[in-house]
Design a protein around this nucleic acid. Structure first.
Lengths: 165, 165
DNA sequence: ACCTGAACACCGTTCAAGT
DNA sequence: ACCTGAACACCGTTCAAGT
């Protein structure tokens, strides 16, 4: 999957499964339906991740911000996520899922900043900055010197401040 | 081009040009060579843009930061740029070009921040934050409420400060 | 209900033959 | 030097026929 979703060939798939291509078309109408199925699968996985993320909500603000700052630039799934976001450009289903993911993360960060003491506008803007930077890092993380964990926290503190606003 | 580089079919190309596919293979070894040619073309265009960007260097710091803040989130070429960055995932030539572009922009911002009065580390981190946010915006700009020009400047001031450091 | 086999369209690629 | 035409491989898709 990390080499891009365009590399999924139904011929190869059937070879690997030891069935003929005709068999494939009993289960799926066409390759697009397969893709949608894969997409749905990914959305489920992502929902679990999100449910995990939401548990962060119960943590005290300071600790919550700390945790979020690490999650945002987590490189564990960088390659896969870049491939998914690429896929979103051509598949509406995936695009929807990615948009919802982005929005939920944004809301998560924003509400944390609200709890931290920022006003509505301020919280929205700063949350946007952080989320966009995280997404940018997912895409271009290899093009610029990778910041250390400590530097990321320094950046985070820069945007969020040292103490409640 | 904005619908993704995977949609470039040599059959379609030859139809549009009114020649046979055989003719295509006189000019190019294979489809990859065509892609490389297109990539090189884009790199040239990008180099012109960069030369333009470099002229910013001669502006006074305050004005320079102002201009950069607008360039970073310029949505003029958002779709195309997203397609290019997607292409970079599978084409080494394009990947190199994008990396160089990112680095030059990063350097531009960083040196502006140095002139503005930040120390080495501080300038590097803040420049990274801004550049990543700009790239993230290119990719996910439609998923979250688009900030206004004024809000972008507010964000910029947040990272850069109101007066020289 | 699930699979095979053969057929067809489309696209990338090769190459001998034309001018 | 530049192009055509026909051929082939590969992949997506369809469908009649098998169990």
């Amino acid at each position: 999957m990390s080499d891009g979703v365009a590399e999924v060939k139904i011929t190869r798939l059937c070879e690997q499964l030891g069935v003929t291509k005709g068999s494939f078309y009993w289960h799926f109408a066409d390759i697009d339906e397969l893709m949608t199925a894969i997409a749905d699968r990914w959305v489920e996985t992502q929902n679990e991740v999100l449910r995990g993320l939401m548990q962060v909500e119960s943590m005290p603000v300071a600790e919550r911000l700390q945790t979020i700052s690490e999650l945002l630039v987590e490189h564990r799934t960088r390659t896969v996520e870049a491939a998914i976001r690429e896929w979103a450009r051509t598949n509406a289903r995936v695009a929807d899922a990615v948009r919802e993911l982005d929005q939920r993360i944004f809301d998560l960060v924003r509400s944390a900043l609200l709890d931290w003491g920022f006003g509505q506008d301020d919280a929205r803007l700063r949350a946007g900055l952080l989320v966009y930077a995280g997404i940018g890092f997912v895409h271009a993380g290899n093009n610029l010197p990778t910041p250390t964990r400590a530097e990321i926290q320094a950046l985070f503190r820069l945007v969020v401040g040292d103490e409640p606003a």
